[in-house]
Amino acid sequence: MVPLPSPQQLRYLVALADLGHFGRAAAACAVTQSTLSAGIIALERQLDAAILERGPAKRPVFTPLGLELVGRARTALAALSAVAETASAARDPMTGPLRLGIIPTIGPFLLPRLMPALRRAFPRLHLWLREDLTSRLAEDLQGGRLDLLLLALPVPLPELETLRIAEDPFLAALPQQHRLLQQPQIPLSALGGERMLLLEDGHCLRDQALSACELPGAGVDGAFAATSLHTLVQMVAGGLGVTLLPRLAVAGGVLAGTSVVLRPVEAPPGRMAGRSLGLAWRPRSPRAAEFRSLAPVISEAVTACLMSERHEKLVT
């Protein structure tokens, strides 16, 4: 019978791959560096396989087989976590820790309203938050470091289960005195002829804005890209161009202190001028029913934010 690696050995392996440093990986696993190194060596001997290249490099370099084993270790650890999660969910649903990943074009604008609502609805739920780009959050979810994602759809995540919970329309944001402000509602086609300001590559909102205006990504001036919606708004206020903003961000105060003017946008028939907000989790997660029970609370928080009086004053 082939001896099986221990969960601790797999944790050492994954931590070393994630952090790329023996000392930091050991600290993350709450062991000494020598203990982690010995654990990796023992795993290599146990599997009769070279996981790391031996050489002068100070950072760990994984062999091709080592990289494959890291992926399988992530899957195995996620499966072990699911065993404990299944028992916990059956015993006492919506309690204990929940690690939620959220994208930066949603988090700052929704969380001030969402967090109190979740505390009222699920007082025994302990929420841990991580804000990052969709691609990195998806990696953490698949690796078992996150339980649930709140993001903008559609996104190419065929390996995850998703649930749409709310719609977030786009609004055109323009500098003062812009010629398009003469129109009470701006067709998306009219924005296609303007210098469109976007977020940097990696933000799903960038791709969604390009898709809404039917603009090719290669045709957009890469010199005018922002790292956040707040920076994007300042660029519009400075007259560098126009952009599309999610209504949720506007309701959350992204325009505060600026002279940017908003207009509703008009999409062609059969197309949506906006994005969908949704949840994503690992397929066959034992907590899927819990995640679905969160959807109405999040949806109500989104609706309350979009209908806020503050937002109605901003759209002129």
Rank of each mutant, 00 (worst) to 15 (best):
30 A>G: 03
66 G>Q: 13
253 G>S: 08
39 G>S: 13
300 E>K: 12
100 L>K: 03
236 V>P: 05
309 E>R: 12
141 L>I: 02
152 A>V: 15
155 V>N: 11
10 L>W: 10
42 A>K: 14
85 E>Q: 15
48 D>V: 10
239 G>C: 09
89 A>Y: 11
92 D>F: 14
62 F>V: 07
93 P>A: 07
270 G>I: 09
275 R>G: 11
81 S>P: 11
143 G>W: 03
126 H>M: 13
290 E>Q: 01
17 A>L: 01
44 E>K: 03
47 L>H: 09
64 P>T: 01
40 I>T: 03
146 L>C: 01
269 P>F: 12
5 P>A: 13
218 A>H: 13
221 D>L: 07
208 Q>G: 08
162 T>Y: 01
190 A>K: 11
249 A>P: 11
61 V>Y: 09
289 A>I: 06
53 E>P: 08
274 G>C: 08
230 H>K: 14
16 L>T: 04
84 A>P: 04
42 A>W: 05
263 R>F: 03
151 L>R: 02
105 T>P: 02
144 G>H: 02
3 P>D: 12
68 E>M: 10
135 S>D: 15
262 L>Q: 07
103 I>N: 01
315 V>Q: 09
215 L>Q: 02
133 L>P: 05
127 L>P: 01
94 M>Q: 05
283 P>Q: 13
227 T>P: 04
12 Y>C: 00
133 L>A: 10
3 P>H: 09
32 T>Q: 00
164 R>T: 15
94 M>S: 00
179 R>D: 12
224 F>C: 06
44 E>D: 05
4 L>F: 06
275 R>V: 15
229 L>E: 02
184 P>I: 05
209 A>Q: 06
271 R>A: 10
276 S>V: 12
248 L>V: 08
80 L>K: 09
162 T>P: 01
93 P>M: 00
65 L>W: 15
136 R>S: 13
73 A>R: 02
242 V>S: 04
310 R>I: 10
177 Q>H: 15
190 A>C: 06
250 V>M: 11
221 D>Y: 06
113 R>G: 15
201 D>N: 14
98 L>T: 04
73 A>T: 08
76 A>T: 10
147 D>G: 00
13 L>Q: 00
289 A>W: 07
77 L>P: 04
236 V>H: 06
291 F>I: 06
242 V>M: 06
38 A>K: 12
87 A>T: 14
260 V>E: 09
300 E>W: 06
132 D>S: 08
